[in-house]
Design a protein around this nucleic acid. Structure first.
Lengths: 120, 120
DNA sequence: ATAACATTTGCACATATGTGCAAATGTAAT
DNA sequence: ATTACATTTGCACATATGTGCAAATGTTAT
């Protein structure tokens, strides 16, 4: 007589409980994990990464930024908003122009966060 | 008499050509930029980031990985494929089980790449 | 007030993508 | 050969998201 398939897919069972517990410790702080993911995600899009890289040496206005990354002002402005919200870039207004630059503090914080997790 | 609007949006004109050229230099190597973005994107998704963080201390089989990141085997396997393709993780087969671990070489390469761009 | 122009934003659309079910694959044991 | 089980994969679906046009906003100058 055939036995019923009880667990068609490994779903509930754990093979090495210790290792699993150890792994879970690494990702226990959900907020921090999500924050890290958010930063990675922002840098994980070519246009946004180009923007950030372009700003490493000097501040640029939106217009020049669009030229540098070979896109258009609207698209760049949309992406700048996301980078601004995450504090990866900051801005300075001068008349009609707006100059964006890297928010060193937050970028460095982000890098620190990465290192913490990879260097222990 | 009203003048015609010639440039309703700053599109073609460049304000500071020097700075733009300098910025373009930073992103001249398109392949490298895309490769960096690809790595960031992979780490920019909570499930995948959790997987990578879980693997920092020790290798885990797919089943335990699913338990650790509180997901299911199918989803984790899908994401592992992406991480595998990018060489962020490697694997070792043992009977029916497959143990995944961080591909230190490539992770370190990735971190180096980030540092290069941010520390000059 | 009107014009010019840099930037932002609302909207819509096409595309990418994370997810999980169900089936397939692969492996070990009986 | 058959059973059991870990993993992978094909598929479909819901959702997220990058993009650019057109309009709105804000600022300077005439």
């Amino acid at each position: 007589m055939k036995k019923e398939k009880i667990a068609p897919v490994c779903e509930v069972e754990i093979v090495d409980e210790k290792k699993v517990a150890q792994a879970q410790k690494k990702i226990a702080d959900t907020d921090q994990v999500l924050e890290m993911a958010e930063i990675f995600k922002l840098l994980g899009e070519p246009t946004r990464l180009k923007i950030v890289l372009s700003l490493i040496n000097s501040e640029l206005c939106v217009c020049d930024l669009a030229a540098a990354v070979d896109s258009n002002v609207s698209t760049v402005s949309h992406q700048l908003r996301l980078l601004r919200n995450a504090r990866l870039v900051k801005y300075r207004k001068d008349g009609k122009m707006v100059f964006y630059s890297i928010d060193d503090k937050h970028i460095n914080d982000a890098i620190e966060k990465i290192k913490e997790h990879t260097e222990e």
